[in-house]
Design a protein around this nucleic acid. Structure first.
Lengths: 170, 170
DNA sequence: TTGGAAAGTCAACAAGACTGACATAAAATG
DNA sequence: CATTTTATGTCAGTCTTGTTGACTTTCCAA
């Protein structure tokens, strides 16, 4: 599609140099180290509250989709409901998340951040955004476009569709 | 530096649209979902061996730098020695890693993959590379360049220098 | 109305991270 | 040569976060 097809071996080889095992390995290692940096700042903040990454993820996506159900969250986070429930329980007990019984379906719980929850969400996301902002700025808009493009290809298609739905609808 | 400076608000705003909180949030969520995809295939393989991600990471970097020491590995992986030791012990017991007493400094242990270790390393990395290869191919070489550029900015500078040293020297 | 499915909760357990204390051997230093 | 530092390994205990299994409440459809 986007490859210009030169005849013969030389042309093809030159075009596909970015697909060598060595280039792939560099990308893999970059993902590993970058993800560590990506989580480092929120992790430091969470320590002050005796929370972990699981709490951050729950807070993030509840803030993102207020009124979401436990089942929705399970789908997004990809953990078992028991695991999520433990996290939600502490967040509710600590007054960061409010759980309201569903109106249509009383089995469901609609989740909302409280004022306190929004405050922590903002503290966490601002720390994470600061690092991303600096990285984006240093790399430039074209690099950022490529960054997002590759990430979307790495993730499972289901999650890509989910992200797309958030961008369109929200 | 790489920003072209237009006078007035409109020009500046248009140039920096990729730095809005919304764009940053999309990048953050993309990182989260992509990392899950990134680890999914190796995780599935590791289950068959009753190993975890920690084993994968150790195997990867021992394969990357044969003869590396425990201390080196601690530095790269960013875990405690107790944590790493548990992993190394099982890998050595299972005959995937060989630990030789250092020649210059007999306190050190030089770590090597055995034939069996290399086999697992290859199985794991090939699965991970397959996903990355597909993503790279779909996104194209320019996107891949941006991807790597942004990741390098996200990681801590220490790890960036480490990656650079691997590219130059190895 | 009754039985199954769905949403959510509670309890117990496992992996893998952590800290802290301690042991051993070897190297470095005074 | 005595002491200190370094590299590694180990034991014990804790924490987060994942798991499975059993359970309640609610909804829906046969």
């Amino acid at each position: 599609m986007q490859d210009r097809h030169f005849p013969g071996q030389a042309g093809k080889g030159e075009n596909l140099l970015f697909l060598t095992d060595d280039q792939l390995r560099r990308g893999i290692e970059a993902m590993f180290f970058a993800y560590r940096g990506f989580t480092a700042d929120p992790d430091r903040i969470l320590e002050n509250y005796a929370y972990g990454r699981a709490h951050h993820r729950a807070i993030h996506f509840i803030n993102r989709s207020p009124g979401t159900t436990v089942n929705n969250l399970l789908d997004i986070l990809g953990v078992t409901k028991q695991s999520l429930n433990r996290v939600l329980r502490t967040l509710i007990e600590d007054g960061l998340v409010e759980s309201r019984i569903g109106t249509r379906d009383k089995r469901e719980r609609n989740l909302y951040l409280t004022e306190k929850g929004r405050a922590l969400e903002h503290e966490l996301s601002e720390a994470q955004r600061a690092r991303m902002r600096a990285a984006y700025r240093a790399a430039g808009p074209e690099a950022v476009e490529g960054f997002r493009k590759v990430l979307e290809q790495i993730m499972d298609p289901r999650m890509r569709r989910f992200l797309d739905s958030l961008s369109d609808g929200g």
